[in-house]
Write a protein that binds this DNA or RNA. Structure first.
Lengths: 149, 149
DNA sequence: GCTAATTCTTGACAGTGTAAAGAATTGGTC
DNA sequence: GACCAATTCTTTACACTGTCAAGAATTAGC
């Protein structure tokens, strides 16, 4: 499998930022690094991870970096129901599996492979470009620790 | 199609509340009525609609009613990315079509018909009960009024 | 090194949703 | 109709997510 397209290292990120017309800063590289190291993290967790790497960074700079990079397709923003926005570095077409009991969220590869991987019956005049799929269920951990509670 | 299972009127809601072990109160009936009258409304809009009907209601009572009813399957809670939670009275298996430009959100009937209407390739040990699908695109209004902005 | 544009820091703010304690209401029973 | 226990509503306060704005610092290009 050709993963190099989707797992950027620091150099690739710098190039991607420049290609998007964004400046390359230590903060943005560190934010990307944190997203890569801890997929599905929320903004606050990324903020803490970046502080471990850089020492200090403002909350606003983290939000700016996350928004700027997700708007340009360098990272991907996902927002499961009942949770704050989460971020991940994989930008290929894949979906998510969420636990109703805990906040666990994992990736699922798309069975089709290319976006939009589903076609709606009626598009109602919309120009559809993506089908976001979230599977809901109970994760193995919660199942084994008494799923009925 | 047997839609009577899914489109409750006030009496049905009272029965559904009792069946769920919840008390029947004017506030809850009014909240359900508001959800039914304005699908995809956020909590604040529902709060305002209920105040038109009842006169006064506390914000907390609205949240309580929405949470209690959605937990028991009487209404359904959806949470599109970048927006607060929205509520709808249809609890059958259908999906949503969201505009990236404005906040427009409409229903799409499920092509398959029964939940979960999709099967993940690998369930990773999860006990999956629902596949939530959100189609993202540009709505006809935004397309005609210059979709590039 | 210098300049213009972008980005980061700092502080404040709006909106969503929850927590807790006491008052009011509901449902069941007498 | 009255009473009681349980639930629900009101009120107030709070945590959290995310944004806005102004000035300082950094980046990229020359």
């Amino acid at each position: 499998m050709n993963q190099s397209e989707f797992s950027h290292d620091q150099l690739d990120v710098a190039e991607a930022l420049r290609a998007a017309g964004l400046q390359v800063t230590a903060q943005r590289l560190a934010v990307y690094h944190a997203v890569q190291a801890t997929p599905h993290a929320i903004a606050d967790e990324i903020c803490q991870a970046v502080r471990l790497e850089l020492g200090v960074i403002s909350r606003q700079a983290v939000y700016d970096a996350l928004n700027a990079m997700s708007e340009h397709g360098i990272i991907r923003r996902i927002q499961p129901a009942g949770s704050a926005a989460r971020y991940e570095h994989r930008v290929d077409n894949h979906h998510h599996l969420a636990c109703r009991n805990c906040d666990n969220l994992i990736d699922i590869d798309c069975a089709i492979g290319e976006a939009p991987c589903l076609v709606a019956e009626h598009d109602h005049g919309y120009q559809i470009d993506e089908a976001e799929v979230t599977y809901w269920g109970i994760c193995p951990d919660c199942l084994s620790h008494g799923g009925s509670s």
